[in-house]
């Protein structure tokens, strides 16, 4: 394997984004933040997809992350981002390590349907919770960092910076993981699970770990969305939200850790501008672009980039 320049590219790209973030208008900063949040969820999803499993229920952890942020601010009085995000990770790990015990036994459509079922259970519970505002959701208290309360006007920028840092760390870790034996194990399971077992590796354990990692990433995405948007509602756990994540994954492709980010940004920008240009037919523009990509770039946008040798060797 040759020298791996991806981490350097990733660092450079995201640091550049951080600098650019200081100069671009606020609405674009918000769009970038939401794209990164969704990109993180999809990063977890492609981890599962590389293993041949499609989760239609990442909304479960996306929503969990958002609601933990909201509840800790509104009901427990915890607004410190570092502490809240720690809680988010704990909650997502706990829930996914329980559900994972069941889910790692299922494959294909059964896995997809079960993940969706669990996320719809959370949706149902939240709709019935009038204390949490039912379908209206509730407003999130303004976030602080280590006791520092930023100006309301500057909050967009520092949440963006936070999102960039979390995304960078997540991308680096996942890149290393994808290239580790455990990471390649996913593709091996997708190709031939029985062989993997003969090699002495437990596919169930591998899938279990991947499921937990994907859950934590999704919860981070939800937490960032919640802090940035300032509001959570049960729609985050609805199947259509999870469906959008699968769409982004298809759009970006599963070939590279940065692909979900590109996919998420593209879908956000196409949608927001379509909504502006064609208030009555924006869905057609969005759907049309997705169809074009699925027909002509089945491996996602990332397949347009020239492949490097080391990647071909996979």
């Amino acid at each position: 394997m040759g020298s791996d320049r991806t981490p350097i590219f990733l660092c450079a790209a995201l640091l550049l984004l951080l600098v650019v973030g200081l100069f671009i208008p606020n609405w674009l900063v918000f769009l970038f933040t939401i794209s990164m949040a969704k990109g993180l969820v999809v990063l977890g999803l492609i981890l599962l997809m590389r293993t041949g499993l499609v989760s239609f229920g990442q909304g479960l952890y996306y929503c969990l992350g958002g609601y933990i942020v909201g509840i800790s601010g509104q009901h427990w009085g915890i607004t410190d981002v570092a502490l809240v995000f720690l809680l988010v990770v704990l909650a997502a790990t706990l829930l996914s390590s329980i559900l994972g015990l069941l889910l790692c036994r299922y494959r294909e459509i059964f896995f997809a349907m079960l993940t969706m079922a669990f996320s719809m259970i959370l949706y149902g519970i939240l709709v019935k919770s009038e204390k949490l505002g039912s379908t209206d959701g509730f407003i999130i208290a303004q976030a602080t960092l280590f006791g520092w309360q930023p100006e309301v006007e500057a909050s967009g920028t520092w949440i963006f910076a936070l999102a960039v840092i979390i995304t960078l760390v997540a991308l680096l870790v996942m890149h290393l993981y994808f290239r580790s034996p455990m990471g390649f194990g996913g593709e091996a399971i997708r190709e031939n699970e029985i062989r993997v077992e003969y090699l002495g590796v437990s596919p169930r354990r591998l899938i279990y770990i991947k499921y937990v990692v994907a859950a934590v990433l999704a919860a981070f995405g939800g937490a960032i969305t919640a802090v940035a948007a300032g509001h959570v509602d049960p729609e985050m756990a609805f199947w259509a939200t999870s469906g959008e994540f699968v769409f982004i994954a298809l759009l970006g492709g599963t070939l590279h850790v940065a692909a979900p980010l590109v996919g998420a940004f593209l879908i956000e920008i196409i949608r927001t501008i379509a909504l502006d240009l064609a208030p009555y037919t924006w869905q057609m523009i969005l759907g049309g672009s997705l169809l074009l990509i699925i027909f002509f770039l089945p491996k996602g946008l990332w397949s347009l980039l020239p492949k490097r040798r080391e990647e071909e060797g996979l």
């Binding site: 606020n26 609405w27 209206d136």
Partner: peptide, 30 residues
Amino acid sequence: GTKQVGEFRNLVQRRNVDAVIGYISSGDCL
């Protein structure tokens, strides 16, 4: 809600509207 927060920012900051009138859903208003 999240989508509408984004669109609201676009209206105010990109389209520079002087005022916004709207919203039917209570969740969006909140």
